[in-house]
């Protein structure tokens, strides 16, 4: 099982801040994104048509990063602080 967190537009548009995702075999971030994009039109819009950043266990990672059970995976738009 991995924990998925969504922030900003993603959280708001998908009306979801946190979800649990069952993970039987290791999966890349890119594979997880394409699975999430298949959950519906809005999910496709957020995960397949826009720039989405990813953090794994609170560190910025990329599409090739492999995920294992217990990981905390966060998706969010490019940051706009400061």
């Amino acid at each position: 099982m991995i924990k998925i967190l969504l922030f900003a537009q993603l959280r708001e548009v998908l009306k979801c801040h946190r979800l649990e995702f069952p993970l039987s075999t290791p999966l890349s971030v890119a594979e997880l994104k394409s699975q999430l994009a298949g959950r519906g039109d809005l999910w496709h819009l957020m995960f397949a048509e826009q720039e989405v950043l990813v953090a794994v266990n609170q560190v910025m990672r990329d599409n090739e990063t492999m995920l294992v059970s217990g990981d905390e995976v966060a998706f969010f738009p490019p940051v706009t602080g400061g």
Partner: peptide, 14 residues
Amino acid sequence: LMDFLKMDAPFWKK
């Protein structure tokens, strides 16, 4: 610090 804060710190403005 400001340049990297704006690029790497997870904040979002609405």
